[in-house]
Design a protein around this nucleic acid. Structure first.
Lengths: 228, 228
DNA sequence: TGTATGCTTTGACTTAAGTCAACAAGGGGC
DNA sequence: GCCCCTTGTTGACTTAAGTCAAAGCATACA
């Protein structure tokens, strides 16, 4: 069974000895979802957590009128849905797939039992949750302190950094999803992209973008300048 | 030394046997701050985490223009600054006191060592971080999906709930701080309080408020209605 | 090949909330 | 008592971004 090979690749379980990877593989369940499938919904009781093996998962909140705020988009290797595991409560947000997706499911009780027998697993988990808290703190300050152009600039720079600072990059999600991730709507995003192009900050053809004025984007992202 | 008595009262360490409380007391350091004092600033390396013993601590982010978004306000028994402990990095936000404050400081390495010897401590910690992630998810959806009147309504209902559903409540922070917590500014908060009073939702004299139309507030908080 | 479907863009309009500025009002401290 | 400083309120104005509506472009697929 190649489950164990997949588990070894999960950063969350990095640095653990082989027998513990086996323990994890023993409790893990494989699940598959079609693009657009719902993994869980806000308010449902959570009986375990997930790790993306392949595909993409969108975690989001929904307003009563149906506007969605994307909280995270997770790709291969990233865990999600872990909040209710340690709290014994319900999922705080929705999870649906953006592509055909495979993931591993770790049932709550079995996982907690494993942690009890080995604290280093707990430390890994604590690190993951801490990192997520940090990302949340940044998301909160983006949403409340920066205007949309600043958030977009920050996101483009983030994508560029993820490509080792390359000036050309490609959006890996459709623009209307990006809008949700930035806490806005497609129309606004579109207008801002147009403006950024006119101002010579970027060049954009479809989903491929080129950063032309990195410093300008950085100033926007830092809130030092605004997009006039 | 009454340190141990204080540590026993911290929910984070609840349910642990007495000898572990002693271990914790042995590594904890007591610290005192005057009102308005800085405990740490964003970007500083974190060498441990804190638990409020008495007083109030405000955790916030700052925009370049100086606008602040309060992320949490912590009171007695609540831990803060734990993100860098498990991640070995820096504080993601600022922490200053709102009152004269005492807290306990737990140095990173010593605490991690304790966790390694006892996983149940780790589980408590995981629960705390998970709960915080949940709060963050709610904060994000408040900030991005609700308008200010909705956030205020939600906050008032939260305060009421904390007083066992009482219809009268008292703000425990000045209104300009509340504005920061709601992601807005004092002027806007003031106007909305006036409007809520005119609409018969609440009565407000200074910091004491009375909930007159609970259902109305709930509809506002849920985003089903708006404050015309 | 055409047509349907989903994504993106553009334009005209509305609105919530921020800015700036002035002015209460209250509570210590002297 | 008086004054100062922090906090809170009100008004006039500006603006970023959302809404609604329509049309443009793809890609897929039948």
């Amino acid at each position: 069974m190649e489950m164990i090979a997949e588990i070894e690749k999960i950063p969350l379980f990095e640095g653990l000895p082989a027998d513990q990877h086996r323990d994890l593989a023993n409790i893990a369940l494989r699940k598959a979802y079609k693009r657009g499938g719902t993994i869980f919904s806000e308010g449902e009781p959570g009986h375990g957590f997930y790790v993306v093996i392949s595909g993409k998962v969108k975690i989001f909140k929904l307003s009563p009128e149906g506007k969605e705020q994307i909280i995270h988009i997770f790709g291969p290797g990233e865990p999600f849905g872990e909040v209710p595991v340690f709290e014994g409560r319900r999922f705080p947000a929705h999870a649906v797939t953006l592509d055909d997706t495979h993931d591993c499911f770790f049932p709550r009780q079995a996982f907690v039992d494993l942690i009890k027998t080995n604290p280093s697993r707990a430390l890994n988990m604590l690190a993951v949750l801490s990192r997520r808290l940090r990302r949340f703190a940044n998301l909160v300050d983006d949403l409340s302190l920066k205007e949309v152009p600043g958030r977009l600039a920050a996101h483009l720079l983030f994508l560029s950094e993820r490509k080792d600072g390359s000036d050309t990059l490609e959006l890996d999600i459709p623009k209307y999803q990006l809008a949700g991730l930035l806490g806005t709507i497609p129309e606004t995003l579109s207008r801002i992209l147009t403006k950024m192009t006119q101002r010579g900050l970027i060049e954009a053809k479809g989903p491929r973008m080129k950063i032309c004025d990195r410093k300008g984007l950085q100033e926007l992202a830092a809130g030092l300048k605004r997009l006039v």
